[in-house]
Computed example of a mutant assay.
Amino acid sequence: MTAPFSPSAGARAARVDSPWIRRWSEATASRLTLICLPHAGGSATFYRPWAALMPPEVELLGIQYPGREDRIGEPATAGMGELVSAVADAVLPLLDRPYALFGHSMGSAVAWELAHELDRRGAPGPRRLFASGRAAPGTAVTGQLHRQSDDILSAELGRLGGTSREVLDDPGLRAVILGAVRHDYRIIETYRPGPRPPLTCPIHVLTGGADPELGEERCRDRARGWADLTTARTEIRVFPGDHFYLTPRRREVVATVLRRMDPSLTTGARTWPSTP
């Protein structure tokens, strides 16, 4: 029988300093937590601009996978199971208040697996799960891009958007980025979800209407796959934009997430430094 879940204040303070966790503001007034999981090849920094839009009631936490940015020298995880187990270890002490999970692209599958892993450990479930830019686990079409050449992988990044041509044309930057992308593509392309009981939290499906992976009509068709994964309601929101619609539509996306977490929340207006 699983032991009762009871994170301590000391454990929370220690785990916020975990290499897996990024936090960009103090959380002294927070009553909710939003945990964000990056896309393939992405990092926690992708969500850093969201911090300026968070009200004081919400603590924003980004998950930093190994093998990128300040964790570039660390060994990457072997597969989805190892990745999710390590993320669960890091976030478990931080669940002393209601929380939601947000995952973009590969991150949505990680978020879904994380919700089940936390439940297996006896932790409280998320208030909401936000699945962005990807079909439901078990229905998403996968390929073999992680086995392809750097040129083919670069072309795929260009097709999806989100990576500037200047970065891909720089040999040094390209090598670093493609290393993380190839590793993450291997995880998601070899990922085969096992049978799971449905979650009990609402699932909110978000996508860009021009996403080549999951456009407006395909999103509405495939949303039924996410609906099968919860006993609660499933909602779809389509934004203008491509696979990385989140960047130009940041304020709308964050406002949508906050309203679904708690209708009383509004976006903040803090000024954040312009450094990357």
Rank of each mutant, 00 (worst) to 15 (best):
R97L: 01
D119L: 13
V84W: 11
S108W: 07
L95A: 03
V84H: 06
A109M: 08
S132N: 08
V84G: 12
L101Y: 02
P93E: 05
M106A: 08
D96G: 14
V110E: 11
M106Q: 04
V87F: 12
A111K: 05
G122N: 13
F102H: 02
P124S: 04
A123L: 12
P124W: 04
Y99P: 07
E82C: 13
L114I: 11
S132E: 02
A115S: 14
E82I: 14
S132P: 02
D119Q: 15
S132T: 01
G81R: 14
F130C: 05
L129S: 01
F130E: 05
R120N: 15
G81E: 15
A90K: 09
V84T: 12
F102G: 03
A115H: 12
A115Y: 11
G122M: 12
P124K: 07
L95G: 09
R120V: 13
L83W: 09
D119T: 15
D96K: 05
A123P: 09
L92C: 12
E82N: 10
H116M: 11
A86V: 00
R128H: 14
A88P: 07
W112Q: 11
D119E: 15
S108P: 07
L114G: 11
F102P: 06
L92P: 06
L83F: 10
L94Q: 00
L83M: 15
H116Q: 14
G107V: 01
L118K: 07
D89T: 14
G103H: 06
V91L: 01
S105N: 04
A115T: 11
A109I: 05
P124M: 05
F102C: 05
P124N: 09
L101N: 01
M106L: 13
Y99W: 02
E113L: 12
R97T: 00
G122L: 13
F102M: 08
A90W: 09
D89N: 13
G81F: 05
L114Q: 10
V91M: 09
D119I: 15
S108I: 05
A109F: 13
L94T: 08
A90Q: 11
M106V: 10
L129T: 02
L129C: 04
R121L: 14
G125I: 03
V84E: 06
E113A: 15
L129H: 02
A109C: 14
R121F: 12
P126I: 00
A123W: 06
V87E: 11
G107L: 00
G81V: 15
S105F: 01
V87Q: 11
S132R: 02
S108K: 00
A109T: 13
L92T: 15
R120A: 15
A111V: 09
E117Q: 14
F102T: 07
L92M: 12
A115P: 11
L129E: 04
D96T: 00
S132H: 09
Y99H: 04
L114C: 12
R128P: 05
D89R: 14
G103K: 09
R121C: 08
P126T: 03
S108H: 08
L94S: 06
